[in-house]
Design a protein around this nucleic acid. Structure first.
Length: 150
DNA sequence: GCCAACGTTGGC
DNA sequence: GCCAACGTTGGC
């Protein structure tokens, strides 16, 4: 099992929209490193859903329900066809009771090496299992970490 | 709105 | 192959 984080701007495609829809085709990724991460995703992998730009925070947990296949939106994107862009499909598992803000992530020494901080512009990235579990713990209801960090 | 980080493009 | 110019992402 692998763990990942994907970013989305809530104004464009937020957690709420995702859960209403029930399933998302993660299309439009046009960065090679992000694409390689999409290709490495396996069915059942767990994915942290992160809101970027507006109130940046991890807001929910999702899972991979369909592994990578060619991005159908490439058809309307002249010049992109040869670059091997792919999509995966995601389904929501659960929201975090307390969204874990970027502020809190930066304040947590155990998360100092997380890709979210190290490579702030990457939109699809792997997460270590210990980082993943800690973020879920921080996002759980009445977490000890909230009191420490707030 | 500004700016830093960083990826892409194109001239040479 | 180098590098300047430019575009995009995303935090603040």
């Amino acid at each position: 099992m692998n763990y990942w984080l994907v970013k989305s701007e809530p104004e464009t495609y937020g957690w709420h929209h995702f859960t209403q829809q029930g399933r998302a085709i993660w299309d439009g990724v046009r960065n090679y490193q992000a694409r390689n991460n999409l290709k490495a995703m396996k069915r059942g992998d767990q994915v942290l859903f992160y809101h970027s730009v507006t109130n940046p925070a991890v807001v929910g947990l999702a899972t991979i329900v369909q592994e990578a296949y060619p991005d159908p939106t490439v058809a309307e994107d002249p010049g992109a066809a040869s670059k091997g862009w792919v999509v995966v499909e995601l389904e929501p598992l659960m929201p975090l009771d307390n969204p874990v803000s970027l502020r809190h992530i930066k304040a947590e020494p155990l998360l100092a090496a997380i890709g979210l901080i190290k490579q702030s512009r990457l939109s699809v990235m792997p997460i270590r299992v210990d980082e993943f579990e800690l973020i879920l713990k921080m996002g759980a209801k009445s977490s000890k970490n909230d009191h420490e960090l707030l």
